[in-house]
Design a protein around this nucleic acid. Structure first.
Lengths: 351, 351
DNA sequence: ATCACACATGGGAGCGCTCCCACCCTACCC
DNA sequence: GGGTAGGGTGGGAGCGCTCCCATGTGTGAT
């Protein structure tokens, strides 16, 4: 069968078998060389490698996946396009980090778009049908069914940002609490006394933690935390505008605002400006994320930087470790890593 | 052989065979139902579908890929992380568009990171080893070897932004020329007379076309196009700064700047401000891309919007069509689509 | 020299699916 | 009534690989 040279369109790449013939060895031996097994003599290895090079052989992924029952690929499950995940630096940076962690391996990255709950449910099925060896979950709501489904199916998974204080899945998060504290401490240090906050959607644990950090910073400094200084946004610019308008309405005396995201801060800035408040003279403003818009805002926005690419990289490494872990499921369930990466306050002219 | 219920970790999803037994039919029949073949009686189809539902059967992708010699997946080849592609809206939006086009199909999306030429060369091999049915290329330099390799291997591919006027591959681009013209016409209409431009890297065809549009607009309006009004950036903020400094040095009398990207415009803005030029009073500024920073810049930046998500969507549809095309290679080579999507000038306070 | 054992190697048996050919049965024709 | 289409169906033959067992071949111990 098979002539030596490439055959017709598409189908015609060399197979393991052809390499074996060329090198004058058996299939098994070629397979061992390809997979770096030590149990091959130096001489044979060289012969096989030469044949591989001559033929331009590349293993067929599908065949390997079928035979070995692993795909050498992981999926990043991307939430509904509308979500804030797609705006702002988050998406790019996470992927960037994942990509750089994957560069050292021969794992492939699958991008999967998940819509509503129904789609996420069937998604779990698909993922389990040996499409991938593991899953990276980003931007997950507290009530998303997907993480539990994955756990049930015993598919290794890592989540970005836990869903609650006791996250059962492995997770990588940034220190939202400390970041918020640092922001508010900074405002206090600057002499601000009536500090309001605009929160993100509180069903996102990270948004809750930012609020917690805000409360803690004020409390610890001996300040009261009246509820009329807290307004709820939804991570959107428009939400930030509405929240800021509310705040100004309720507490015209405020002299600082800590926003749970840069985008909301941008919305807030507009309302403040329209209301004739100068930034930072009348009202200091601090955001969260340190995205591109923070640098370019007028005035440049003080913001809490999250190491997002680093998070992507860390998530990937944790996932790869989970995939490599061969202990029984019960044992693996135990030592799940909960990593929290530090945030950093970047001071600019808005505060 | 298999009991009815799931087996141990990982391995235990139901197979076609099990569905066949459950439904009391042959493997072939189940396969026909799964793949929507019409040659199945209504009665049998119902029985099979019930068995599928009961067992929660999901086809094994790897097995299907191996047997059918197609993967039902396409790859987006992402350039080196450093490139501008990763900053700014481009990446997110393209992926967004690709994702939405793919949502209507059952194709999967593979993200592949390509580094230097050597990596791109081996990448072509990998892609051809039936990892994917087609490839989407974004942000390609004029001398990138990958497109030609793909063409040689007869792997369907679509490129975003052509590499030259006679692009052999199918391509989807935005109308850089018309966008630049519109921007410059707008500046002329506003009474500006000494209009400079900051170009992107001219080995990117789109950057060249933006420059062409600038020249054409001025020429057509009867203005000279002195070379000292053109400075070259590299799509980075810092490049924008340097180019603006040069420009100011050479032509302190300029009253408008058309930048080849928003990021470069941001850099230019800083230099203009430091030089004491007011925007737009002394110098009008127009960018390209209409990214998030354009909206948040001070003052908000007039910019040329590209329909990036739409480009991603269109590229995907073109690619899917190429994949579906079963005509002989020679015939397919002919009718390759070259799509150009319209750009739109978004006027804000900077001009 | 003899046995044991380790290492190196070949190749059969699948992995779960699609493709396709052979087969059966019914319906319709002459 | 026999012949002939076809639609509907079953299942063999792979797809290209990994896994693993059986088989060689060389070494050192006895």
């Amino acid at each position: 069968m098979g002539s030596g040279q490439p055959r017709g369109r598409g189908g015609g790449r060399p197979t393991l078998e052809e390499v074996a013939v060329r090198a004058g060895v058996g299939r098994g031996t070629v397979s061992r060389v390809i997979n770096g097994s030590p149990r091959v003599s130096e001489h044979t290895r060289a012969a096989v490698e030469e044949a591989v090079a001559e033929l331009g052989y590349v293993p067929n992924t599908a065949a390997r996946a079928l035979a070995a029952n692993r795909t050498d690929s992981i999926a990043v499950v991307v939430p509904e396009p509308e979500s804030r995940f797609f705006s702002e630096p988050y998406f790019s940076d996470i992927i960037h980090g994942v990509g750089s962690a994957l560069a050292d391996t021969d794992m492939q990255l699958l991008l999967t778009f998940a819509g509503g709950d129904r789609e996420r449910r069937s998604l779990a099925q698909y993922l389990s049908a040996h499409r991938v060896d593991g899953v990276l979950l980003v931007s997950v709501h507290a009530d998303d069914p997907l993480p539990d489904l994955l756990q049930q199916l015993e598919i290794p998974a890592v989540i970005s940002g836990r869903r609650s204080a006791d996250e059962p899945l492995a997770s990588v998060d940034s220190d939202n609490f400390a970041g918020a504290r640092a922001a508010v401490d900074h405002l206090l240090a600057r002499g601000r006394r009536t500090i309001a906050t605009i929160t993100g959607r509180l069903d996102v644990y990270g948004a809750q933690r930012r609020l917690d950090g805000y409360v803690e910073a004020l409390t610890e400094a001996g300040h009261p935390v009246p509820s009329d200084l807290t307004a709820h946004g939804d991570f959107t610019e428009d939400g930030g505008r509405r929240a800021m308008a509310d705040l100004l309405d309720r507490r015209p005396d405020l002299d600082a605002v800590f926003a749970g995201s840069d985008v909301m801060a941008a919305g807030a800035r507009q309302v403040l400006r329209e209301a004739g408040r100068r930034i930072p003279d009348d009202v200091a403003l601090v955001g969260f994320d340190d995205s591109a818009i923070a640098r370019h805002m007028d005035p440049p926005l003080t913001s809490v930087r999250q190491p997002i690419a680093e998070m992507g990289r860390t998530m990937t490494n944790v996932l790869l470790a989970e995939i490599a872990d061969t202990r029984p499921a019960a044992a693996r369930r135990l030592g799940r890593q909960q990593i929290v990466l530090p945030t950093e306050l970047v001071c600019r002219e808005s505060s």
